[in-house]
Design a protein around this nucleic acid. Structure first.
Lengths: 238, 238
DNA sequence: CCAAAAGTGTTTACCCTACACCCATGT
DNA sequence: ACATGGGTGTAGGGTAAACACTTTTGG
């Protein structure tokens, strides 16, 4: 017990939001070596008397200016390859955060620049985050996409009051696939305790849309299924 | 960078198997303070040049006598409450392992006694594992139960060659609920690439059963749904 | 022949997809 | 009136639950 190998423990955050019609991830431009000048996920050391989720919430405030209240936060996975940080032996506990499109201060406490990067662009250009953050982002995206199917998590991207169309756009953007508005509507309004109607409407264009807030259900049952991409015809062109 | 709070990093294992018609978890009797004499999950420190999964595999061999080859192993979650170990600040990365009922050596390298404990009994008696291992076990059970629905993971509890009835018993034991043998049969044999028939049979009692090995599918589609426990009638008695 | 378990067929209900259609607003 | 999106109805196909029934062995 007296002796054990010492590790540095950090938390890293995959903070996702839907903004300008695209799925975006919060990234920090590194101002120090290693990987100076490269993008990285926000994160930092866990303090001696802080629990892991507490550290994640603190970083969320410090680096993203986001109040944990408004954000869904869950543990994603832990990464600890011996050489993931060239400076020292580090284990990082990654958290996934889903935030509505708030007018949040972009850069946090640190001097480094922070920005929302479009996930599609990152994937197209093979990203190039520092450390193993490409993998962490990939795992976070997959978790978020999978969870939309059976959880009320999509609403975490919406403001407190939203319309069915707002929610549908979140699904379409996160999944990158169009959904039938009519079937989507029936599905989410039909699920017990999933959406709570506010008996008010909001007008944008066309018929006013009913406003909802999230209900008490923690599961969407039956689940919303992602359209199977290559079910019969794999090639979209031609 | 020069200075950071040092942590001890450990891996803990939730090793599940089906044995004597019950779901069992591998437990170690602690021979040292704290929690001396109490049951705990097997685990240990991660070594300086070892990655996390490597550490989990090493513990699997050392403490359970299980070759990682025969076992499904996946990361479960990470636990790092500041006081989870009274001796020092420790973060543990928990792994979930699913093993067939091998004639495995019970006790491993350590002097401490190891045994398979029935999960039902533990839950009934409010367990009482050391540290936060009750929570870790609970999370591991939930993960295992959920994954049976949509993955070929149930077969990890079976030997390399098994019958549909073998697999069904795994599901029934892990979920604690009876399943219709006929619908189960149709479902698992109907899913593409899920089971590979070996064109041989095995005789126990009654009509010989076809032998199968696991196919290449990594997903069971459509999923096998757990019977909803309290769908209408919550009380089983009366 | 009977018991026991393996495996098939059939019925019914539900859910999903697709799309026709109506509704409520702004211009 | 018409454009625009919000929302409902409905027909067809597929999957699941329940259970009758047939098959293949051992006693």
């Amino acid at each position: 017990m007296a002796n054990y190998p010492p590790f540095a423990v950090t938390v890293d955050l995959v903070v996702l939001t839907v903004r300008d019609g695209a799925l975006k991830v919060l990234a920090i431009r590194r101002s120090e070596a290693p990987f100076k000048g490269r993008w990285a996920l926000p994160g930092g050391f866990v303090r001696p008397k802080e629990d892991l989720e507490g550290a994640a919430k603190r970083e969320l405030e410090e680096e993203a200016g986001l109040k944990p209240r408004q954000v869904h936060l869950e543990q994603l996975a832990t990464y600890g390859a011996p050489n993931r940080d060239p400076r020292m032996r580090t284990v990082t506990v990654a958290y996934l955060a889903l935030a509505p499109d708030l007018p949040a201060p972009r850069a946090g406490g640190d001097a480094a620049a922070a920005d929302w990067l479009a996930v599609d662009e990152l994937v197209k250009h093979r990203s190039a985050f520092a450390f193993d953050h490409n993998q962490i982002l990939k795992d976070g995206l997959e978790r978020a996409r999978a969870k939309l199917e059976y959880s009320p998590l999509g609403a975490s991207f919406c403001p407190a009051e939203f319309t069915v169309a707002d929610l549908r756009k979140v699904y379409e953007i996160v999944w990158g696939t169009p959904l039938d508005p009519r079937n989507f509507h029936r599905k989410v309004t039909g699920a017990a305790d999933f959406l709570l109607p506010l008996r008010r409407t909001r007008i944008e264009v066309g018929r006013p849309a009913e406003l909802y807030k999230l209900g008490s259900a923690r599961l969407l049952h039956p689940p919303m299924l992602r359209p199977t991409v290559g079910d019969i015809d794999e090639s979209p062109d031609r």
